[in-house]
């Protein structure tokens, strides 16, 4: 029993990270139908930039804040320099652009930060807490709290603010959004900034547990994508549930089968979802356009 609890704790921790990556996918997908495969690189940048700022002598919270803001800026630049000029191109082309951007960001990070593994200290020490016979790192609680806080903030943003509704409106009908006075290019910029900031936050939270290096983004993007697919692409609730489910499935696979099969879990899930549940658990926003 305590063994199961242990697996659940580790599953919830990585699951929260996948959920954050999946939420990042969701925001950009909703605003533009684009699946942004540079989402994993935002996570990497969040961790890496924090490492650099912290190494430069800044206190950790400030270093993390700077990393998140700079990553958001990089997200905006990605939109302005690569996505916006290609507006009107088929979505597939835009997705390929994001893959190119992810390769570019990874390469730049390799040059800038080197190939070695980096880390910075946990926020609240490394003494594990004992809960019901299992242990959990304080940092894991930070990760879970971060995932939940972002989800709630996004939920409030999309349901309670006019700006949030403008993003939903733009995703639903870009033309009509322009006709009511929404600057749809600005909505895109905002979406990239938000997604990048959320990705960077995930990187900041998880790096003390997993460490980071220039190439952690690929795997995270794939896992986050699997999570988003599982939950139903475009649905924030689906992103959260999909991420946590995927994390738990991975942890159980690693615990009861073998950690060698852990990564396969995500791919098996992508395949199963594509075959049997193409809309994901929470369905796509399948609203008819009359």
């Amino acid at each position: 029993m305590s063994e199961l609890l242990q697996f659940l704790f580790s599953g919830l921790t990585v699951g929260a990270v996948y959920a954050l990556v999946a939420l990042g996918f969701t925001i950009i997908y909703n605003a533009s139908d684009v699946v942004n495969f540079a989402q994993g690189e935002f996570v990497m940048l969040g961790g890496m930039l924090t490492v650099s700022a912290y190494a430069a002598g800044l206190p950790l919270p400030l270093a993390a804040l700077i990393a998140i803001v700079v990553t958001a800026g990089i997200g905006v630049a990605l939109n302005k320099l690569a996505i916006e000029p290609a507006r009107g191109a088929p979505v597939v082309s835009l997705i390929i652009i994001t893959i190119g951007a992810s390769i570019f960001l990874r390469g730049a990070a390799q040059v800038l930060f080197g190939k070695q593994i980096h880390r910075f200290p946990s926020f609240s020490g490394d003494t594990p807490l004992r809960i019901g016979g299992a242990t959990i790192l304080p940092q894991s609680l930070w990760v879970m709290a971060g995932g939940i806080a972002v989800f709630i903030a996004l939920y409030l943003f999309f349901t309670r603010t006019l700006t949030g509704k403008a993003v939903l409106a733009t995703s639903n009908n870009r033309l009509a959004a322009q006709l009511v006075g929404i600057n749809t290019n600005w909505v895109m910029t905002l979406s990239f900034a938000l997604s990048a900031a959320i990705g960077a936050l995930a990187g900041v939270l998880i790096t003390p547990i997993t460490n980071t290096s220039y190439d952690v983004g690929i795997a995270l993007a794939l896992k986050g994508f699997a999570a988003a697919m599982l939950g139903g692409m475009g649905n924030p609730k689906g992103a959260l549930v999909g991420g946590i489910l995927l994390g738990i499935i991975e942890a159980l696979t690693a615990g009861y089968l073998s950690s060698q099969y852990k990564d396969a879990a995500a791919f098996v899930i992508i395949l199963l979802v594509l075959f049997f549940l193409p809309q994901g658990l929470f369905g796509a926003r399948h609203t008819e356009r009359v």
Binding site: L168, N172, A176, T287
Partner: peptide, 16 residues
């Protein structure tokens, strides 16, 4: 073709 925001409520459409 009306182009209303189908995923939002009537009131949200008006608010927008």
């Amino acid at each position: 073709g009306r182009q209303i925001f189908t995923n939002l409520t009537v009131e949200e459409n008006l608010r927008l």
